[in-house]
Amino acid sequence: MTAFFRNFYFFVIALFLALPLIVVAGVSVNQKQTLAFPPEGFSTSWYGEIFLNPEWRNALVASVTLALFSAALAVAIALPLAWFLWRRVAPWANIFQLLGVAPFTLPPVITALGMLTFWATAGFYGQPWTAVVSHAIFFVTLPLVTLSLGFTSIDRSLVEAAATMGADERTIFRTVVLPLILPYIVSGYAFAFVLSLNEYIVAYMTVGFTMETLPIKIFNALRYGYTPTMASVTILFVATAAVIFGLVARFGDLPKLLGAMASDGK
């Protein structure tokens, strides 16, 4: 009886989470360019459209490029910071940890508006690289939190053991710390990559008038009516996220990774 209630409850939650996506998946395979569910006819042409239509393709390329670079920059900022905080006693340096967590904790509009006023004042407004920097700062929280967690899971006596065996600081980092932290670098990168791919407001406020990422493209298209390509892009994004997080779970310890992520304020 209890098990039945639990399963029913989980089913309702699953349905709630999946329903919009099921409908979107349905309309994405409509034959005609109308919004209709259940789908009328079956066609995968709207998925082809993402890659064949130059506008959608450009947006896809822009989004993927932005996500690849900004996630890399976010990791490049987070790794030395997390390492420093783990290796040294410097209570004042925790201020940078706080700064790293702040952009993601505050309402996104605030970071976006800050970036907009900053790039406009500095005179770089609209340049593509400003979006890379803005996203890297906005999402630096994710690799920072996974890496901080990763470092705390490294037994410090491993570092001492390496020193007793003749390794200097640089060698220890290369032969012991880096191999052990690598899974956390990968998952931090993956989180930042997926969220950057989906991010709208910061990208829109920094480069919205000069280039279109996929979320911007969908939103702009939405204002002028409906096209099924939106639906196929949505499904593509959900699938990408699921595959990437699935891989993180396959090669890492997802519950552990989330166990500390959320408790740190996410």
Binding site: L158, E160, A161, A163, T164, M165, D168, V176
Partner: peptide
């Protein structure tokens, strides 16, 4: 510094990599 002392040490946690 430790890494120039040429010693061998076994830690309480063993510290196997």
């Amino acid at each position: 510094p430790t890494h120039k002392r040429n010693l061998g040490m076994v830690f309480q946690s063993l510290a196997l990599f």
